[in-house]
Amino acid sequence: MSDQRGFSTRAIHAGYEPDPLTGAVNVPIYASSTFAQDGVGGLRGGFEYARTGNPTRRALEANLAALEGGTYGRGFASGMAATDTLLRSALRPGDHLVIPNDAYGGTFRLIDKVFTQWGITYSVAPVTDIDAVRAAVRPETKLVWVETPTNPLLNVGDIEALAGVAHDAGAKLVVDNTFASPYLQQPLSLGADVVLHSTTKYLGGHSDVVGGALVTDDEELDAAFAFLQNGAGAVPGPFDGYLTLRGIKTLAVRMDRHCDNAEKVVDFLSGHAKIESVLYPGLPGHPGHEVAAKQMKRFGGMISVLVAGGIDAAKDFCARTEVFTLAESLGGIESLIEHPGAMTHASTAGSLLEVPDNLVRLSVGIEDIDDILGDLENALR
Rank of each mutant, 00 (worst) to 15 (best):
G70W: 05
R51E: 11
E160K: 10
E160G: 09
Q229N: 14
Y16R: 03
S32A: 15
I130A: 00
R74E: 08
L269K: 02
L214C: 06
G39D: 06
T148C: 05
T216S: 12
T325F: 09
D3V: 12
A11D: 06
A62R: 15
E147S: 12
V266K: 03
E48A: 15
R58G: 00
A171Y: 01
S329H: 12
T344A: 09
V195I: 07
L203R: 01
I120T: 09
G300E: 03
H339M: 10
L251N: 03
G374H: 07
G170M: 04
P340G: 08
R381Y: 04
I111M: 11
S207C: 04
A82G: 14
I333H: 08
L373G: 04
V194S: 00
E367W: 03
R246K: 11
G39W: 00
F76C: 09
S304G: 06
L326H: 09
N26K: 13
A14Q: 08
Q37H: 13
T22I: 07
G53D: 14
A24G: 06
G15A: 05
R361G: 02
S181L: 01
R57K: 12
G69N: 05
H206L: 10
D217V: 00
E140T: 15
I366V: 15
G241Y: 10
A213E: 04
V194Q: 00
L306R: 15
V235E: 11
K142G: 02
G231Y: 13
P28M: 08
H286T: 06
A31E: 15
F324A: 13
T116H: 01
G39I: 03
K113N: 12
T71P: 01
E367L: 02
Y122V: 04
D158C: 03
T199E: 05
R44Q: 13
A213F: 05
N177P: 04
I337E: 06
G69A: 02
N54A: 05
A292Q: 03
R361K: 11
V215F: 01
S347L: 10
P28Y: 07
S329E: 11
L87C: 09
P284C: 08
M343H: 13
V235L: 12
I29D: 14
G205K: 02
G231L: 02
E334F: 05
G42I: 05
R92W: 02
T121F: 07
